[in-house]
Amino acid sequence: MIRDKDRILNLILISPSILAVLIFIYAFIGWSIRVSLSKWKGLTPDYTWNGLNNFTELFADPRFAVDVRNTLIFTGVFVAGSLLLGFFLAVMLDQGLRGEGFFRSLFLFPMAISYIVTGVVWRWLMNPAMGTRLSGLNLLFSYIGLDSLASAWHTTPRWGMAAIALAAIWQMSGYTMALYLAGLRAIPQELKEAAQIDGASELQIYRHIMLPLLAPVTLSALIILGHMSLKVFDLIVAIAGKQLELDVPAIYMWQATFDGLFYGRGAAIGILLLISVAALIIPYIRFTLKTEAQQ
């Protein structure tokens, strides 16, 4: 059915995009791998073979150990917080209350804002000053008599990343809410009604019927949020700048490469990030395309 002329035209029209993707994604990844295996340090490229030394050095590097710890803390708090809050909001909005659209828009608007803006504002909200210089959320807590909640936020030793994850939850939980809400709306109403007739309480329905049916949504959200936390960068830069205590691989990569000119090491961090993201995303893409093909 497809004519030859059209077939050729097709290829001509799509090849610039495919070529761009091939070069800017796949060839560049290959190039990065090559840099990560080189001794390149300084402004001029140096591709002298260095084996896996950049990687083994990283695994022995205390700064990289801090990065891994921070990424784990951030991922744990951010993913768990966004999933729980997102689910909670979606269930509330699923009750057919008036003003649902208004609340939904309200919970989603932080998604439209950049991490930089979020970071700049949250840095002032999470002002750790105590005593007479109390401000931000700590001041708000003292207004309502909850002084004990006052926190050092991101300046808390070891656990500062959890405070940064809080700002990220503010930004991204609306997204999880939207995913869950779409999932809830796709569940046939009859299922719920049947359970009601059987005498199940609202709570039981959500716990034993909705939640299991939403497992695919939870899995998608888990993967999307998880891969975002591996890449977290701008939010931390805007809240804390480049502090060692709040370092993550993406910041280390940036600093090692563009401030320190340790290109080999920077590339190695980039490749490690790519491997960890790929481990999450490749099975996800395969699974999604397979289910799509079955439909």
């Binding site: 994604i25 990844i29 290109y263 961090i269 980039g270 990030l273 993201v277």
Partner: peptide
């Protein structure tokens, strides 16, 4: 992809 993995190239 994390753009850190293509940033140098």
């Amino acid at each position: 992809i994390p753009y850190q993995s293509i940033l140098i190239p």
